[in-house]
Amino acid sequence: MELHLTLLFNGLATGMLIFLLAAGLSLIFGLMSVLNFAHGALFMFGAYAGTWMYLLFGGAAGDYSILAFGMGLIGAIVTGIVLGYTVERTTVRQVYGNHLRQILITTGVMLVVGELVMLIWGSNLISVQPPPAISGFTELMNVRFHHYRIFIIGFGLLVLISLLLMLKKSKIGLVVRAGVENKEMVQALGINVRKIFTFVFVFGTTLACVGGFLWGPFQGQINRIWG
């Protein structure tokens, strides 16, 4: 029983992180049918950039507070937006509708982003722990519930619910769903599908970067092999 609970709990936390990674990937594939081989590298870049911000602010204050962690999160989000926008505008945009070229070009992006990580942060492991406010665990019925994992599950649920609400209720969500079904008709209604594409790509990349950042303290370290 305890073992089951532990596995279930840990599985949920891991699942939420994978969800953050996969949600972006499948939105990008679903709407734009773009095979994005760079998604993992973008996830890794987000992990490094976010962790770097977290450690920078946390180290400066000497306490690795929840505030510093928040700065890391913001860092990952900003990185996702900038990176997603740049990659979509400069490369992915050129290859809509051509899977072979998508594979080639996004593989290229993957390599470049991987090298960039090397160049900026080096190839050593970086250890990272959750802020004290959300580390440690609570023991219930002989099962250890790590606070950071509870946080990840909560955060993932929050993203999941907002994503569902957005897709169900907001205008842009409706347009995205309509676009997945029939891109041409959406255009013929006066909507610039390109803009929607850029938005979705940026959004998906941002989710990946945030997932990458949250993964670090979950593992206790980040390294380059993830890409």
Binding site: L174, E181, A188, G190
Partner: peptide
């Protein structure tokens, strides 16, 4: 491009209607 043409004030009803089937009438 099509979206600019549509915005100039041309409405298009295609041969196969191209209704968004996952969306309600309202949506």
């Amino acid at each position: 491009p099509p979206h600019v043409i549509a915005k100039k004030g041309i409405g298009y009803v295609p041969e196969d209607q191209d209704i968004f089937s996952d969306l309600t009438v309202q949506e």
